[in-house]
Amino acid sequence: MLKRVYDWCIAAAEKPYALWILAAMAFAESSFFPVPPDVMLAPMSLARPKRAWVFASVCTVASVVGGLLGYAIGALLYDSVGHWLIQFYHLGDKVEAFREGYARWGSLVILLKGLTPIPYKLVTITSGFAGYNIWLFVLLSAITRGCRFYLEAVVLHRYGDWIRERVERHLALWVILFLIVLVLGFVIAIKFV
């Protein structure tokens, strides 16, 4: 099964709709979907290393736009359901302390967590909830997501053939390592965020 999925991703790089699939995945991951776009970005870049830059650009733009949806979810849920829950549990004073802390450290949070395996949707939704400056949020999201996806593009462009040979030889091992990193990101997010 893993081989079929991998082969489908490799073959998708040649299709005219490849960029749309990649964009949809990056968009969804920044707002509500649990699987990162690297699942498509890496195999597509391995299949066509010279287009790794294009793939990274699509991921960056779609991720930032998807981040705006995540931001809206955080902002709108607070105004509707979130505010009622805060009052119900008598946590009004803690929300303002959280917002003050996020106003002070939000830039660092966005920049660092955008590079990690911690799900980026947590950053986007939290930014909206905290009322973080939307224009600064967009700028920082473009920087951090661009760094992540372009770093991946540099590595896959330069060492793509070498990496592809090893991935295909030990596909199950690489998928297991990827899943461990993904689960670790969720665990870190739940325990420490």
Rank of each mutant, 00 (worst) to 15 (best):
L2K: 07
L2H: 10
L2V: 10
R4K: 13
D7W: 00
W8G: 00
A11M: 09
K15S: 15
K15A: 12
K15E: 14
A18K: 00
W20P: 00
M25T: 12
A26H: 07
F33T: 09
P34G: 05
P34C: 11
V35N: 05
V39H: 02
A42G: 06
P43K: 04
M44W: 01
M44A: 06
S45V: 01
S45A: 13
L46N: 01
A47I: 05
A47P: 12
K50P: 01
K50L: 07
R51Y: 02
V54M: 13
S57I: 13
S57F: 12
V61N: 04
A62M: 05
S63A: 14
V64S: 07
G70N: 08
Y71L: 05
A72E: 14
I73P: 03
L76H: 07
L77K: 02
Y78R: 12
V81Q: 10
W84Y: 14
W84G: 12
Y89G: 03
Y89P: 04
G92E: 14
F98K: 04
G101I: 11
G101C: 03
G101A: 07
R104F: 13
R104A: 13
W105P: 00
G106D: 08
S107L: 14
L108M: 12
K113S: 10
K113R: 09
P119K: 11
Y120Q: 10
T124W: 02
T124N: 07
T126V: 07
A130W: 06
G131F: 12
I134N: 05
L136N: 08
L139F: 11
S141M: 10
A142E: 02
I143S: 11
L151R: 02
E152D: 08
A153H: 00
V155Q: 04
D161M: 06
W162Q: 15
W162I: 13
R164P: 00
R164S: 08
V167S: 00
H170E: 09
L171K: 01
L171V: 04
A172K: 07
L173N: 08
W174A: 03
W174G: 00
V175E: 03
I176V: 15
L177E: 09
V181M: 12
L182T: 12
V183E: 06
G185W: 03
G185F: 08
F186G: 08
I188L: 15
I188D: 01
A189M: 08
A189R: 09
I190K: 13
K191Y: 11
F192D: 08
F192N: 03
